[in-house]
Structures are given as C-alpha cells and as structure tokens.
Design a binder for these strands. Structure first.
Lengths: 197, 197
DNA sequence: TCCCATATCGAACACCATGTTCGGTTTCTA
DNA sequence: TAGAAACCGAACATGGTGTTCGATATGGGA
C-alpha cells in the first residue's frame, strides 16, 4: 500500500500482477479468480500483493484505468489529424491491436464490475466530446448524458459482439455498423451537421 | 432442490426468500448480500434455503425469470391492442407500476450478473419481434442480432437513468426519448416503414 | 378428523478464501 | 558497500458456504 515508489521491484511486481490477472480473465470469470490464482501465476508472495492492492477489485480497477488512459491518449492523438465526435475507426483499430487486453476487459470473463466502471469512464469521455461539439443553442429533446450513454453502450455492444465473432470482421466493417447505428439518431437530435463521428 | 411441489409451505418459503432478496437488493449490492442476510430477512432456516436453491445466484435467477415472464406476458398482451415492434410505452408504464421490483433488478445494487442475464433475455425477446416484422427481403447492413442488442441496451439504459432520477419523468417522456434514440436508426436500416415501435 | 408424508428448523461441521502479521531474506539505490 | 525498502511465506483469525441429521411442525388425502 505504501509502495508508490518508482522502485524497480515495485514496478515489476505490479506489472506481473496485472499481467497475471489479464491472463486469468481470459480463462475464467473475475469472481471465480482467487487471489491465490493471481499469486501463483505472477509468482508473487501473498503479503506482497496486499502491500500493493487492498484486494482483487483494487487490482482490477488499476488495470481498467490503464486501459482507459491508453484509449484516451489514442483518441485525442487521432483527434488532431481527424477531428470529430469520436475517432471511432481509429479506436476500433486500436482495439484490434490490443486484442488480448481489450478482450479480457470488455468481453472476457471480464467481470461485470467493469461493465459499470469501464462503461462509465467511456461515457464520461464521450459526453465531454459531445459538449464540445454541440451547437451553442442545442435544445435537448434528449438530455446530453443520455446521448452519451447511448453512444458508449452501442460502442461497447459492438466491441463485445466483435469479440464473440472471434474478430473475423475488419475494424472498417465494425466501424461502419457503428456509424449506421448511431449517426441517424445523432443527426436527428442535433438537427445540424456534426460531421463524421 | 426436490421441493417442486405445490405444497403451500414450499410456495410460502420461495415467496419469502424472493421478497427478502429483492428488499436487500434495494439496500446493497448483490455480491455483498449474504445467505444469512436473506435467511434473517425471510425468517427461513438455513437448510431450508438449500433445499430450494443451490445458492444465492440460483435464487436471483429464478426471480429474474419471474420478472421476464411478467414483462413478456405484459408485452404480448398489450400487443394485441397495439401491434408494433415493442409496445414500449406500455412497458414503461408497467415498469413504473412494478417500480420496486424493477428497480431492484435493473438498477438496484442489483448485481451485474443480471445485466447479462436480464439483458440477454430482453434481447432475445426483441430479436424475435424484429424477425416477425422485417421486410421479407431485408438486406442486413447490420446483422439482426446486433440490432436487437442495440434496442435492448438502449431500453435498459433509459430504465436505469429513469431510476437514477427517482422516476420523476412520466412513462410518456421516457418513451419519447426511447423513440427518438431508436427510431431513426431502425428506419434507416429497414428502409421501409415499420410503424411505431 | 386423523395420519403420514414431507417441509422446516437449527445446531454442528468441514471447507475454503480473505486479509493480517512478523521475522527473515533479497534487491535496489545512493 | 551499507542501509532502506521491498519481497517472502508460514501461520493465524475471521467469516461465508454448503451439508448433514435428528427433532418438530404442517399440509393434504382418506
């Protein structure tokens, strides 16, 4: 708990634990993963684990935050070359690259805890983008937070389906579906051009 | 486990356990509800619980199935007077009536287990309706199962938000948002009239 | 109404995961 | 190279789980 140091040992430990958790989440549900499982997989001592994280959930959250940080960075980077609501195609590509990781979290036996946490963070990100984009005088026939939830849940829904199908489809195809599902509604709501999402 | 009898005692026991679980789910997360909590609330003996259900999850599932049965019955009944994809307004009204129950499941500390199970059953119901409704020659630019997931997840998203807001809005208002979110996309996909959803 | 099958009770039990403690060992870094 | 800090791992207390079993209560058929 006090190991916030840059000490190589600490970093190595946290890395091992995170990797182990992700491996395990591709094998079984989060709830049925035991701290001991993680320790065995990571070759880390019991007390060391509790020196870094208060429990399983804590470790999971730290991993989610990592993934979100990555996506956010990726999204804002892609943004500069390709402004819009959400550089969705780039995101779908990113997901394909980070397959294992994303799979563990969004799809895997990945815990429903994260369906909330992850989806929540995703929603916040989208709402923020929406706000920056809406016409000054937007008459909210549907409140903005709902629209954000709507977009985020559709995005994640497609992601899960994509994984279900073993990612046989290309990012372009998935992105195309995303656009088809989300754009008519957005156009309808905004009653103005919002460009490509 | 063998008490599938119509014996009054069995029914009373199951009823009590179900009620207790729902009460508790309005107070805390499913994961942190203990079998003992349920027993105390329901005034049922420990061994009796295990005579009916193999575990907490099993009890939860049986309750979900009950709710789904109700919604299905309600939906198909409303259907006869008001055909369409989904008698969504009627459903939102039904939800408002069954407030406590629905709240426990869809919103409550209601467990994420059910976000999967419940949403899955809901999706199946919608997909079935969609199939009966689509034009014979429907060119699926987006596969039907995805469309069903899309509709179901939007429906549940609105339900959760409604509960978050203490149900201050009317079923009509919520239904209006639902229509605004879902209809443009459906029309776009079907490229034909599907009537009111 | 009576009788018996069966449901319920509840205490006791074995089991297992959790999170803590602590003395000893290893590893980093200054 | 020395000392601070991280790691190890065995041992422990705690608390929830699911089972067992003999005793008691209750419902339904005759």
């Amino acid at each position: 708990m006090r190991n916030d140091k840059d000490d190589r040992r600490s970093k190595r430990t946290r890395q091992s634990l995170g990797d182990a958790l992700i491996e395990l989440m591709l094998e079984k549900h989060f709830e049925e993963i035991t701290v001991q499982d993680i320790l065995d997989r990571a070759n880390i001592g019991r007390s060391t684990f509790y020196a870094h994280y208060s429990d399983k959930e804590s470790l999971l959250i730290s991993q989610i935050e990592q993934v979100i940080r990555d996506m956010k960075a990726y999204a804002t980077e892609a943004d500069s070359t390709h402004p819009g609501l959400l550089p969705s195609l780039e995101l779908f590509r990113h997901v394909k690259e980070q397959r294992r990781l994303m799979q563990a979290f969004v799809w895997g036996r990945g815990a429903e805890l994260l369906t909330n946490d992850f989806q929540g963070k995703m929603t916040a990100l989208i709402e923020q983008k929406l706000r920056a984009l809406i016409p000054a005088a937007y008459e909210p026939s549907v409140p903005l937070p709902i629209v954000a939830k709507f977009v985020a849940s559709t995005f994640l829904l497609l992601l899960r389906w994509w994984f279900d199908e073993d990612m046989q489809h290309t990012p372009e195809q998935v992105n195309d579906m995303f656009q088809r599902l989300v754009m008519p509604t957005l156009h309808g709501l905004m009653m103005s051009e919002v460009g490509e999402v």
